[in-house]
Design a protein around this nucleic acid. Structure first.
Length: 313
DNA sequence: TAACGACCCT
DNA sequence: AAACCATCGC
DNA sequence: GCGATGGTTTAGGGTCGTTA
């Protein structure tokens, strides 16, 4: 029986802008787009970041492979393969739809927290990782090990848009000698791959975020996402530029609710004239033509109009 | 069978 | 998941 | 005065069991 039982508090990586490169101090892993999961082999449980074990019954094939490894507690990212890439939304499919749509769930392991009676969380990262590599030397269909490197040049490659298109969101840097600690205390850093994109402002939500949109070649509009709250320094400039849309003076409702929770308020925004282009910084998580994470508004592009964007594609 | 709320993930 | 805010420890 | 920490708010996407 292991010394660890759910729920345990997982390590959280702190967001950072650039890869740290002090020689010899850091190891790097690709940041995969999925669910954070801790797998308890002996107890046959999958624990989520919030501490729930409800995922266990949704991924029986992962639990079965995990059990085959032995009495281990493994931290990692649960991902879904479809059409040759990782697809976050496919993780929400149940076993039946996974079968029908040829979705393969894989638990990508990146840390070893316990083996048998030994709690390894106090051991240095590289030592835990070495034992994990030995245990997973033979890949299983539904449990595999995440790539790792000590070379920052390899980590930089993971931060390309090409990798982003396959479901790699960037890189995670981990101090080689650090112990596994709850929350942000382990010193892990996550560096997301980002790019700047232009978007048309279609509206404003009640706090301070922008509804972003684009046009297809035929001129039809769609909502590409909602931004982070607009930075203070930009608010006055934006307010002076945006004009109400006279044909739609009433608030418009978007599909869904805040937090996706039933009973939560609907997402409502005030439409504006679609004549303002902003530059936003977005990460690689794009699905169904929408930004899955809210982009950051960087500046107004006075030099561009929606027509420029449409003709440029 | 459809609608609804409870609960799950980021 | 990020931003924001209150609070705590130094 | 400042950083770490923890809770709340704002944004999405789903499955599943019960009930009407």
């Amino acid at each position: 029986m292991t010394v660890l039982h759910p729920p345990i508090t997982v390590t959280i990586a702190t967001p950072a802008r650039d890869l740290p490169v002090e020689s010899g101090r850091w190891a790097y892993e690709p940041k995969l787009d999925g669910y954070r999961v801790v797998g308890f082999a002996e107890q046959q449980l999958l624990q989520s970041r919030q501490g729930n074990t409800a995922l266990t019954t949704r991924f029986p094939e992962v639990v079965a492979d995990l059990t085959a490894i032995g009495d281990v507690v493994i931290d990692g990212e649960l991902v879904a393969w479809r059409h040759g890439r990782l697809e976050f939304s496919s993780l929400q499919a149940g076993p039946t739809r996974r079968e029908r749509d040829q979705i393969i769930a894989v638990f990508m392991a990146f840390d070893l927290l316990a083996v048998d009676n030994y709690d390894l969380r106090g051991r240095p990262y590289l030592e835990r990782r070495k034992i994990l590599g030995d245990l997973l030397a033979r890949p299983l269909p539904h449990v595999q090990i995440v790539d790792q490197t000590l070379d920052p040049r390899t980590a930089r490659e993971w931060m390309s848009l090409d990798w982003g298109a396959t479901g790699v969101e960037g890189a995670v840097a981990k101090p080689v000698a650090s112990r596994y600690a709850p929350g942000q205390r382990s010193g892990w850093l996550k560096i997301r791959t980002t790019r700047t994109v232009e978007a048309v402002v279609l509206g404003v939500t009640s706090p301070d975020a922008l509804v972003l949109g684009a046009q297809d070649p035929s001129g039809k509009w769609w909502v590409t996402g909602i931004s982070q709250p607009v930075p203070q320094a930009l608010r006055a400039e934006l307010a002076a530029r945006l004009r109400p849309d006279e044909s739609r003076l009433d608030p418009v409702q978007l599909p869904g609710t805040a937090g996706g929770l039933p009973g939560s308020p609907a997402i409502v925004y005030q439409p504006v004239r679609a004549d303002t282009v902003v530059e936003v910084q977005a990460d690689t998580a794009v699905e169904h033509g929408r930004f899955r994470h809210r982009p950051r508004v960087m500046r107004i592009r006075d030099d561009l109009t929606p027509d420029h964007l449409r003709s440029r594609g």
